[in-house]
Computed example of a mutant assay.
Amino acid sequence: MAYEFQVVVDAADPHTLADWWAETLGWQVEPSDEDFIRRMIAQGHASEADTTVHHGVLVWREGQAIRHPGGLERAPRVLFQLVPEGKTVKNRMHLDVRTGGGDVAEVVAALTARGAKFQHDGRQGPHTWTTMTDPEGNEFCVS
């Protein structure tokens, strides 16, 4: 049996990091259903403390997801989840962002201007990539 999955990234500020990654990948931040959130609070399933306001919209405080514009059939959902501790060691898993033949140096420069940090360039045979970190220090590669 094949399973579906989503990728979960720990974050200190999941909404801001979701915005950053959605822009980076050309994906969409999942919209908040404010009526549903208010209903959950009114019915006692959640409290005001479980929410926050991001860009003027009521959202769940604990996380924010992004999706490929082609939907879940095209790529798995990525959820940015609030955690209390900061990142302290290298990721054991990371995203590889493929430019589709675009100029990697231009993409790296644009990401650096938006808060990513260059780590190093890599090469294995004819394949090259640049390892970077997002604004919260999560490693990813651009190729």
Rank of each mutant, 00 (worst) to 15 (best):
V53A: 08
V83S: 01
G44Q: 07
R114L: 11
E30Y: 06
G101H: 07
I41Y: 05
P14S: 10
R39D: 14
E34D: 11
R74L: 14
M93N: 15
G137H: 07
T133Y: 07
V53Y: 11
A12F: 00
T88G: 09
D121G: 12
T88N: 09
K90S: 15
E30H: 14
A65I: 01
G44F: 06
D19I: 00
R92L: 10
W60R: 10
K87A: 03
R39F: 04
E23T: 08
W60P: 00
A42R: 12
D103R: 12
G44T: 09
L17F: 03
A110G: 11
G125K: 09
D103A: 13
W20M: 02
Q81T: 07
S143Y: 11
I41A: 04
G44H: 05
W21T: 00
T133W: 10
V59D: 03
V108H: 06
R77T: 15
H54N: 11
D10C: 04
R61A: 13
D35W: 03
Q124W: 09
G100P: 04
D19P: 02
H45A: 15
A116H: 02
G101I: 08
P14N: 06
F140I: 04
T51D: 13
M1P: 08
A75Y: 07
E48N: 11
Q6H: 10
L82N: 01
R92E: 15
R92C: 12
H127E: 12
E106F: 00
D35I: 06
A11F: 03
D33L: 05
A22I: 04
V59W: 02
A116M: 04
L95I: 12
A11H: 03
V142R: 05
M132T: 01
Q124N: 12
D121R: 10
D35Q: 10
M93Y: 12
D13R: 13
D35C: 01
F118N: 06
R61L: 12
E85Y: 10
F80L: 15
V83P: 02
F80N: 00
Q6E: 15
K117L: 05
Q119S: 11
P69Q: 04
R38G: 07
P14I: 03
M93V: 10
W60Y: 10
F36I: 01
E34P: 02
H54T: 08
G71R: 15
T112I: 05
W129A: 12
R38V: 05
G56Y: 03
R74A: 13
W21N: 01
W129C: 10
V7R: 00
T112P: 00
Q119H: 11
S32W: 00
P76W: 04
A12Q: 11
V104S: 00
V78D: 04
Q64W: 04
E85W: 10
T130G: 05
P31V: 06
T99M: 06
